[in-house]
Write a protein that binds this DNA or RNA. Structure first.
Length: 768
DNA sequence: GGACGTTCTGTTTTT
DNA sequence: CAGAACGTCC
């Protein structure tokens, strides 16, 4: 093979190299698990740059912002800092950026707000309420789900309303008002100057469709398009790509049909299965050699996935060693399952000299993390939940950010709803309802009503009107400051001026203190952002900071905290895509949990669950350990389970049957909801919060994601602490139990009365 | 309008 | 079990 100036491709195998060098025309790279897909993408971009293509002309779409950042870093290492101009990121972040540039063409302000799913749901709830519909038949989450899938199929509210098929479906399903909700929802978003997640893709499609000049501009800009995880694209994304690539046809997609796991959010596996039909001149490359896993793991995964019908032909193989058999563990309960997994990690750490970071525990649902965390904590194994609920979704953070949002775009209805009466300023629900009605009647945003209050006769008391004027003036004063101050200066000023600071700091309960810490962290983020060097004369404003905050996940936010490095990672299988670990544990392999009960209604759904299982197993390099629990607490009561059907699909020679350690734990034999099984839950349910020494040492997941593991921030509430209750006076904490934030404290008050207080509500001051 | 106690009800994955 | 919704009191 010739070397010379392409020497930097030396670390690629022949097929990978071909895939890198085929730069012109449509290219499909079918990349089996562990076949070096990321490497190919990275080198492909580097190779394009090397050929003299301007970074500005290359668009690379990845599945997470983190993946994009890592790839960019690597390319900069290879090719130098010109690579900074690459367009890289998720579909959502890249096209949000594009939409901000072109927003005026769609009638949006360029500083439009991006609603996250919470904002969307609240808006939908408000709409169904205004329409007088019952929220039990019209559930916000399922309405949003349907709206989302319509947008992803590029079906507008108007098209939907005029489609006889949809209309009769809706009548049959007793949701005949759906199209009205869809219409109103979109209208309200528009009036608010806001887009939801799906709009970012939908509106991009509209923009490119209706503005040929804009389309041409971006076709010529993005001469080379690369798409990772193509199997997980939906119709909306497919159409954007089709429009952008139509002129130069340099589109390279990388994917693995066996790893398509996002059908629930509109991903269409047909996109990859039919790529060659869409682009007849496609060159196809197959990367079939797996460099990651042992023969045993590759064989097991292959055998399981072969049960699926819809597949592209490929044979993943490896020249790696045979390796260990997959281990199967059986736990009596979820607690027991956790204990065994933690014990097993402990053992591997000793026998294999393995570091914490070599382990991952994967599960199907977030709710499963609880029992695993507890078990890890008991063995002092440090862990971190990867992904998980975003920092930016926390209530106090969203409240503060709602002020930021209003300063940038006062028409933002959801931000307004959040803070118009927070901190309390006597503008209650009744008043807000009147404002909504006035806004709807006049077809304007709520802000316009607020700002021109005297033009509307709403029957508000002078006192309330006065308070509204104060509020409006405050927001206006913030808005005026946006262009001239850094994000940190203004953020800090708003935190103080809005009264949030005073409000939060009043609350001296442990939870209240952690809320203050979270805002502190938000402000630190603003500070970092504000100190980032920019081009001369450009101020890093709050508006710039807020641009893509709604699109960030926890992983994007994390600084490389040294202490976060060597930890066992816990995550859902979905968020494990693209990652690899020496030791992978897959917990909860039970029928109805994995495969999920919800997914058992059709063959396609079951096949997606099987692909999920495939993804999970192929994350492992050395060893996979699978476990299931015979009985598991769900929603407060024990349920008995059958082992997952996927276990039986693993070839017998790849798995060692039930290598579980028999550990005597307190079990009783009794009835479970689905009958006698021989095993059930532990006799004694260990409460999720325990007192060790005098300290409260455990808490629930929501709190853990951002808080130190030793929970020292809760140390304010020690047993024995002196507290003061606003009604009952001083007392002493006798015990704390239950789960944060619903934990209950028993307090002995000075008058001899013993009270149990729900900490979520009780205003306790710590006085000693 | 706010504080807090009680009742109800939900069951997947995420940009 | 845990959060949301509802209800009652000030």
């Amino acid at each position: 093979m010739e070397r010379g100036q392409d020497d930097f491709l030396a670390e690629l195998n022949e097929e990978q190299r071909k895939a890198v060098e085929a730069t012109e025309g449509p290219v499909m790279i079918i990349a089996g698990a562990g076949s070096g897909k990321t490497r190919v993408l990275t080198y492909r971009i580097a190779y394009l740059l090397k050929k003299g293509i301007d970074a500005f002309h290359i668009l690379s779409l990845t599945f997470t912002n983190k993946a994009a950042a890592e790839m960019k870093e690597r390319i900069i290492q290879l090719m130098g800092s010109d690579a900074r101009n690459l367009w890289m990121g998720t579909f959502h972040s890249v096209f949000a950026r594009l939409l901000r540039r072109e927003a005026d063409k769609l009638g949006y302000p360029s500083n439009f707000t991006i609603y996250d799913s919470d904002d969307s749901k609240t808006l939908i709830k408000s709409i169904t309420k205004e329409l007088g519909l019952s929220d039990s038949t019209y559930k916000a989450s399922s309405l949003l789900g349907r709206i989302s899938s319509m947008k992803n199929m590029l079906i507008s509210a108007e098209m939907y309303a005029n489609d006889p098929q949809y209309q009769s479906d809706d009548r049959a399903a007793r949701r005949e008002h759906f199209s009205q909700i869809y219409l109103t929802y979109n209208k309200r978003l528009f009036k608010s100057g806001a887009m939801d997640f799906d709009d970012l893709l939908y509106q991009t499609n509209i923009l490119l469709r209706d503005h040929p000049d804009v389309l041409l501009k971006y076709q010529n800009m993005f001469r080379y398009i690369l798409v990772d995880e193509y199997q997980d694209t939906n119709l909306s994304q497919y159409m954007i790509l089709r429009q952008l690539a139509a002129r130069h046809q340099n589109i390279a997609v990388v994917g693995d049909d066996a790893q398509s796991i996002y059908a629930f959010r509109g991903a269409n596996i047909q996109n990859i299965l039919n790529f060659q039909k869409h682009y007849p001149d496609t060159q196809v490359f197959k990367l079939e050699q797996n460099y990651r896993s042992t023969k045993t793991l590759v064989h097991a995964a292959n055998q399981v996935i072969s049960k699926n019908k819809d597949q592209l032909q490929k044979t993943v193989w490896t020249s790696n060693g045979e390796g260990e058999k997959i281990q199967l563990m059986r736990g009596m309960s979820d607690t027991d399952e956790g204990r065994q997994i933690a014990q097993s990690i402990f053992d591997f750490k000793i026998s294999g000299h393995a570091a914490n970071s070599e382990f991952a525990i994967l599960y199907r649902t977030n709710a499963q993390s609880r029992s695993l965390e507890e078990a890890l904590r008991k063995l002092n194994i440090p862990y971190r939940i990867y992904g998980g609920i975003s920092f930016y979704q926390r209530k106090e953070v969203k409240d503060a950010m709602a002020y930021f949002r209003l300063a940038i775009n006062p028409h933002d209805e959801e931000a307004l709803r959040r803070v118009i009466n927070y901190p309390k300023r006597e503008i209650g629900d009744t008043t807000f309802d009147k404002l909504i009605v006035a806004a709807a009647d006049n077809d304007i945003s709520i802000w316009m009503v607020l700002d021109n209050l005297k033009d509307f006769s709403l029957g508000l008391s002078p006192r309330v009107s006065e308070r509204i004027t104060e509020f409006v003036n405050m927001i206006k004063s913030f808005a005026a400051m946006v262009p001239n101050y850094t994000a940190y200066q203004l953020g800090d000023y708003i935190y103080y001026t809005s009264g949030i600071k005073r409000e939060l700091e009043q609350d001296r309960t442990p939870e209240g203190m952690s809320r203050v810490e979270n805002i502190q962290e938000l402000l630190n983020g603003l500070k970092d952002f504000s100190e980032k060097p920019l081009d001369e004369g450009i101020i890093p404003t709050l508006s710039m900071f807020m641009e893509d905050v709604a699109l960030l996940t926890n992983e994007d936010r994390n600084k490389d905290d040294e202490k976060d490095h060597n930890k066992v990672l816990l995550m859902t299988i979905h968020s494990a895509k693209g990652l690899e670990f020496n030791y992978v544990y897959i917990a909860g392999l039970e029928e109805n949990l994995f495969p999920s009960q919800m997914a058992l209604t059709s063959r396609e759904e079951l096949e997606e669950e099987r692909r999920l299982f495939y993804v999970a197993v192929t994350r492992a390099k050395k060893q996979a350990v699978l476990s299931y629990a015979i009985s598991r607490y769900r929603y407060g009561s024990p349920q008995s389970n059958e082992p997952s059907r996927f276990l039986e699909e693993i070839p017998a020679e790849c798995i060692n049957n039930l290598s579980y350690r028999e550990q005597a734990s307190e079990h009783v034999y009794s009835r479970t909801p689905s009958g006698y099984r021989g095993f059930t839950a532990p006799a004694k349910v260990v409460p999720p919060v325990s007192i060790v020494g005098k300290r409260l040492v455990s808490m629930n997941k929501a709190a853990q994601t951002s808080l130190p593991m030793d929970n020292s921030h809760l140390s304010g509430l020690k047993v024995g602490a002196r507290v003061e209750h606003e009604r009952f006076g001083q007392g002493e904490v006798l015990s704390v139990e239950g789960v944060y934030p619903n934990s209950k404290a028993t307090v002995m008050f000075a008058n001899g009365e013993k009270k149990q207080l729900l900490l979520k509500f009780a205003k306790l001051k710590i006085v000693g």
